[in-house]
Design a protein around this nucleic acid. Structure first.
Ligand SMILES: [Zn+2]
Length: 214
DNA sequence: GTTCTTTGACCGTGT
DNA sequence: CACACGGTCAAAGAA
């Protein structure tokens, strides 16, 4: 399942600067030969809208790969993998002061972190987020590298609500076409994860699990 | 008061 | 059975 990184690395080199999030992520490759993915029932708008959080941190990963699992046929849960890979040549000497920590990739939704785990092998800790909207089951797992770069983002579930409105900046530029010619190309890939309908127990177990400690 | 992050403990699953 | 691993809870703190 998780051996993809290597394969991506070869491609990532070609990545030209790409605005963190561009329309490239769009599931609608209009006339793309392989639109096999997304054909499932993706939310009307799954691609993160404005990822450029602020003027400060623009050293986000250049290249990214999208792994999205088609909605679970017999399950209400959907999982998509989105891998953000940064250019290999990032270890640049001068590069930039490199902010100690980067903001979590913003995708337009609001998340609350409910856990973090240091994985066994990988030295990249995973952060677990849940959509703050009430009754919205969507979860998000962010795995970063030691240097803070996002290695992989995993979305689970579908939002039961539209994307919350973006906070307006007083006297700021309009959010029409911020990124100029961002038309670089990147590879969007999706990988099927478990399609056999595992995790079914997940929901049930969760409910029962209510009364622990307290 | 609120919401969100941090953090170790806890729990389910797999070996 | 125990143990390791990954995901989640929830108390305490921070904003
Ligand atoms: Zn949501």
């Amino acid at each position: 399942n998780y051996a993809p990184t290597s394969s991506y690395q070869q491609h990532q080199t070609t990545a030209s600067f790409v605005s963190p999030l561009a329309a490239n992520l769009h599931p609608y490759p209009s006339s793309s030969s392989s639109s096999s993915y997304f054909q499932t029932d993706l939310p009307p708008q799954w691609p993160p809208r404005a990822m450029a959080p602020s003027p400060s941190s623009s050293l986000l990963p250049r290249n990214f790969t999208v792994h999205q699992t088609p909605a679970y046929p017999h399950h209400h849960e959907q999982q998509m993998h989105m891998q953000l890979l940064r250019a290999a040549a990032l270890g640049g000497p001068h590069a930039a002061p490199a902010p100690p920590i980067e903001q979590p990739a913003k995708d337009g939704y609001n998340w609350r972190k409910y856990g973090q785990k240091q994985l066994k092998d990988a030295e990249s800790p995973r952060s677990y987020y849940k959509c703050t909207r009430d009754a919205c089951p969507v979860k998000k797992i962010v795995e970063r590298s030691f240097d803070g770069c996002i290695k992989e983002i995993t979305y689970k579930g579908r939002h039961t609500h539209p994307r919350p409105p973006e906070p307006r900046r007083a006297g700021a530029e309009d959010a029409a076409a911020p990124s100029s010619a961002v038309g670089a190309h990147q590879e969007d890939e999706l990988s099927d994860d478990e399609d056999d309908g595992e995790e079914g127990h997940d929901i049930a177990a969760r409910v029962v699990r209510r009364g622990r400690g307290w």
